[in-house]
């Protein structure tokens, strides 16, 4: 009897209520104009990466090497059919910027996703188990954190040898510790909360408590950090390729800035500038979004 009543008085479904909640949050996030700007820039980059083969003819056999127009080396923007000019090897800068967005996306997504997963697992185990294991894992994290990210990544990449894949590996090796630390702190805080105590009183299993109570309430700061890191990873990755840790001629923005550097003194500003601009915009966009998310999802950590 009451089932029918339930049906009658609750026309909404749980799913629609949850969606309504999410929509509220999204609306709140989008209220900040800077966040919207960030989203627009990110969307532009994503479209660029997605439609790269349509925007420019992929180079054969490797699309991540700029096609060489040996007839027009160092040509300035707008001349000889090169909208953003060419570099000293005749590589088209526009092509590089467009295909570089694919590499940046690949770099940041791979690094952030893998490190979030690793960091979450390590941090969660440390926080949930506690005791000696926690102590051991956190000391390892401390060692990692004691060395500046860039220098550590640089050392790893240098040992592994110059290639784009090694840059990804190096960055992944460095970034996971941050997430481990963040999630551990949050889990320890949430574990003290009364709703976790309430779940224990009900008799639910530790895994269920982790899954339903602890984890969903602990992820927010990590989501914010991951968003910020989508930008940071590209920034550090570009630094590594700038100093020559990527293959030569790669359409990686950092590598392009490096390649254009020699021409700067000769007044050939366009190569480094456009590639550099792409890096800056990318990092800026994710920082804007990350900050916006933090303000909405996690107001108390503002300005941390």
């Amino acid at each position: 009897m009451s089932t029918i009543e339930t049906e009658a008085t609750a026309p909404e479904s749980a799913g629609s209520v949850r969606w309504a909640r999410r929509r509220e949050v999204i609306a709140e996030v989008l209220r900040n104009p800077l966040t919207v700007v960030g989203f627009v820039i990110i969307a532009a980059f994503l479209l660029m990466a997605l439609f790269a083969p349509l925007l420019t003819e992929p180079n054969q056999p490797d699309p991540y090497q700029s096609p060489r127009d040996w007839a027009n080396i160092d040509s300035p923007p707008g001349e000889a059919g090169h909208v953003l000019g060419t570099d000293s090897q005749g590589g088209d800068v526009l092509y590089g910027v467009i295909w570089g967005s694919r590499l940046s996306l690949q770099l940041s997504l791979t690094v952030v996703l893998t490190t979030v997963v690793i960091g979450t697992i390590v941090g969660s185990i440390a926080a949930m188990r506690g005791g000696r294991l926690d102590n051991l894992l956190m000391r390892i994290v401390d060692v990692f954190l004691a060395i500046p990210e860039l220098i550590f990544a640089l050392a790893i990449a240098a040992v592994l040898g110059p290639s784009f894949r090694n840059i990804i590996l190096a960055l992944a090796a460095v970034f996971w510790v941050k997430y481990a630390r963040i999630i551990r702190g949050e889990i320890i805080r949430i574990k003290q909360s009364e709703y976790v105590a309430a779940a224990r009183v009900v008799g639910d299993s530790t895994w269920n408590i982790f899954r339903k109570d602890v984890f969903p309430n602990s992820v927010t700061p990590m989501v914010v950090q991951a968003t910020l890191d989508m930008g940071n990873v590209v920034l550090i990755g570009a630094t590594l390729s700038f100093i020559g840790l990527a293959q030569a001629g790669l359409t990686e923005w950092g590598a392009m800035v490096s390649a254009g550097q020699s021409g700067l003194l000769a007044g050939e500003w366009w190569v480094s500038t456009f590639a550099g601009l792409a890096i800056v915009l990318w990092a800026l966009a994710f920082n804007l979004v990350g900050d916006g998310l933090r303000d909405v999802l996690d107001p108390k950590t503002e300005g941390r």
Binding site: A14, V17, R18, S193, E194, Y195, A197, A198, A199, V201, V202, G203, D204, N208, K212, D213, P216, N217
Partner: peptide, 26 residues
């Protein structure tokens, strides 16, 4: 147990249906 702080003792990400129904499921 009924806790003191009803704000802290209810998981903010769960619907009332899941909060009250949880003991039954467990």
């Amino acid at each position: 147990v009924v806790f003191q702080d009803s704000f802290a003792s209810l998981n903010p990400r769960q619907l009332v249906r899941d909060i009250v129904g949880r003991p039954l499921r467990v």
